[in-house]
Design a protein around this nucleic acid. Structure first.
Lengths: 195, 195
DNA sequence: GTCTATACAACGATAGAC
DNA sequence: GTCTATCGTTGTATAGAC
């Protein structure tokens, strides 16, 4: 009976490992997620993970891929104009987190907070794919600072709601939160910034 | 050679363990910090940590002690009145983080993001010692929601500046940031909240 | 003599590397 | 699948403080 060696046909193991890695990193964070756990969730041998990705860190970088595509949502949110932009962004952000597809965000946040290379990866990604795109569309002074400040509030909102789970933010409805926070985001695209 | 047993004089081991724990939790986060590493940094046996604190988790809770005292800074910031409150709070927050004494904050944030019991500890602490205090002083509707939203922005600011280190927030001066963010915080204590 | 501080050794679990 | 390292924890013995 042949036990070792390559299986015939296309296995899809690589993709299953990436999917499993997202789930594990999401639910446990970078450090607590284990290569063995990921391999088990993917139904493969741990050595296969090493074969494809070399290291846990590199696997993470590959799996980092965002669940939403800035190339799509940035123009879509900005296109209708400045008016109502704050609430649109906030509502989209909360919806992205609240849906099942937003699960990876939580793991990403956990990983970023505990792991320097994860923070580095996210910093590069956000700067290149989000901030620069926003800056290219906005006709305002210091667009990158404005976008970064607005983004910082949203990150904090996610920390308060999904990580720390402080009340009454944790239990508020997405719509209620979007209405409460929207104007603060809006102000970063409306108001002159102090020098 | 005598190896075990009590050492002569006052050792201060308990305090050294707490200090070492703060340093380890700060630089590595809750999960990555080890009891053995903390014991080594304190120059004691790991079993002594257990003797004093029972478990890693309880040691964390003891070491959690905030570097600033809400009983002091909440009244001090709120006392001059609503006017300029946003900028006062933001400047105080950034200063607390930027000074050497603010180091523990970073570790706290890392721990909270990666560990559920740390998040639980911080949630209880913030709710009891900060939000309720603010709510007791402010004469506004839904003071707890207002304070929580303002706090979420500040947490996000810290994430952007000290953890993710995204530009231009990471390199901005505290004064510049306080002027840019202050009005957003202020609005949470000025404006009517949408229902 | 009793309480407390301390050390040492080892256990069972589990990780990543190869 | 094996190897090695290291984790949190625990049992037990000992020496000083009071």
């Amino acid at each position: 009976m042949v036990r070792s060696g390559r299986r015939p046909g296309v296995s899809g193991s690589r993709e299953r490992i990436i999917t499993a890695a997202r789930g594990e990193f999401a639910s446990r964070g970078y450090d607590a997620a284990t290569v063995r756990g990921i391999a088990a969730a993917a139904g493969v041998d741990p050595a296969l993970v090493r074969h494809y990705f070399g290291s846990k860190e590199h696997l993470f970088v590959v799996a980092l891929e965002f669940p939403v595509d800035p190339a799509e949502f940035v123009p879509r949110l900005l296109e209708p104009g400045i008016e109502g932009l704050g609430e649109r962004i906030t509502a989209f952000f909360l919806q992205a987190w609240d849906t099942p597809g937003g699960r990876p965000f939580l793991g990403l946040l956990r990983s970023v907070a505990s792991n320097e290379s994860a923070a580095e990866a996210l910093r590069q990604f956000v700067t290149r794919e989000v901030l620069q795109r926003v800056a290219a569309i906005l006709v305002l002074d210091r667009p990158q600072l404005r976008a970064a400040l607005a983004g910082s509030h949203l990150i904090g909102l996610a920390m308060a709601r999904y990580v720390i789970r402080v009340e009454p933010i944790a239990s508020a409805s997405p719509a209620e939160l979007a209405r409460a926070v929207g104007p603060a985001i809006q102000a970063y695209f409306d108001r002159p910034l102090p020098t």
